[in-house]
Amino acid sequence: MLTARPADMAAYATPPKSLTTDFDFPVRERLVPKQNEVLVPGATPDVAHLLLAGHTCRYRMLQDGRRQITAILVPGDICDLEALLAGRSSYAVSTLTRCTLGEIPLSRVAATHDPVLAAALQRRLRRDEAIAREWIVSLGRRDGIERTAHLLCELRWRLAEVGQATDDSYDLRTTQHDLADALGLTSVHVNRVLMNLRAERLIQLKGGRLTIIDRTRLKHLAQFDPAYLIQ
Rank of each mutant, 00 (worst) to 15 (best):
83 A>W: 01
152 L>M: 07
82 E>Q: 06
192 R>A: 14
42 G>R: 03
84 L>E: 02
87 G>D: 06
204 Q>T: 09
49 H>A: 04
6 P>I: 00
90 S>A: 15
111 A>Q: 15
218 L>H: 05
35 Q>N: 11
158 R>G: 03
88 R>Y: 07
10 A>M: 11
136 I>G: 10
162 V>T: 08
217 R>C: 09
125 L>A: 14
174 T>K: 01
207 G>S: 10
89 S>P: 09
219 K>C: 07
170 Y>R: 00
36 N>K: 14
81 L>V: 04
183 L>K: 07
143 D>F: 05
141 R>M: 15
48 A>Y: 01
220 H>G: 14
92 A>R: 05
68 Q>K: 11
36 N>L: 07
117 L>K: 13
57 C>Y: 05
197 L>R: 02
8 D>A: 00
2 L>R: 15
227 A>M: 07
88 R>V: 03
95 T>H: 04
223 Q>I: 06
60 R>I: 14
197 L>K: 05
187 S>L: 05
157 W>F: 11
157 W>H: 00
94 S>V: 07
185 L>K: 06
25 F>M: 05
149 A>P: 01
76 G>K: 00
151 L>M: 05
14 T>S: 15
200 E>V: 11
13 A>F: 04
93 V>N: 00
15 P>A: 13
70 T>M: 11
178 D>W: 13
43 A>E: 10
45 P>G: 03
36 N>C: 15
209 R>L: 08
117 L>W: 12
138 S>V: 04
141 R>H: 11
123 R>K: 15
48 A>G: 07
7 A>S: 11
61 M>G: 14
227 A>P: 03
137 V>S: 10
166 T>V: 14
148 T>E: 12
98 R>D: 01
163 G>Q: 02
185 L>W: 04
150 H>P: 01
156 R>A: 03
144 G>W: 01
119 A>S: 14
134 E>N: 13
222 A>F: 11
161 E>Q: 12
26 P>G: 13
59 Y>V: 08
212 I>Q: 00
132 A>C: 03
207 G>R: 12
41 P>W: 06
187 S>P: 08
121 L>G: 05
19 L>A: 04
216 T>C: 13
58 R>V: 01
106 L>C: 07
48 A>R: 01
144 G>T: 05
85 L>R: 05
151 L>E: 03
214 D>H: 04
62 L>D: 14
163 G>K: 01
198 R>A: 08
53 A>Y: 02
43 A>L: 12
193 V>F: 11
38 V>M: 04
121 L>K: 12
125 L>T: 08
50 L>K: 01
146 E>P: 10
123 R>F: 11
64 D>L: 10
160 A>C: 03
2 L>C: 03
185 L>F: 11
17 K>G: 13
77 D>T: 11
176 Q>E: 06
96 L>C: 10
135 W>M: 14
131 I>W: 02
223 Q>N: 13
127 R>K: 01
191 N>F: 09
12 Y>Q: 00
8 D>G: 00
133 R>N: 07
159 L>A: 04
227 A>F: 03
209 R>G: 02
165 A>V: 06
219 K>I: 00
69 I>G: 08
89 S>H: 09
69 I>P: 09
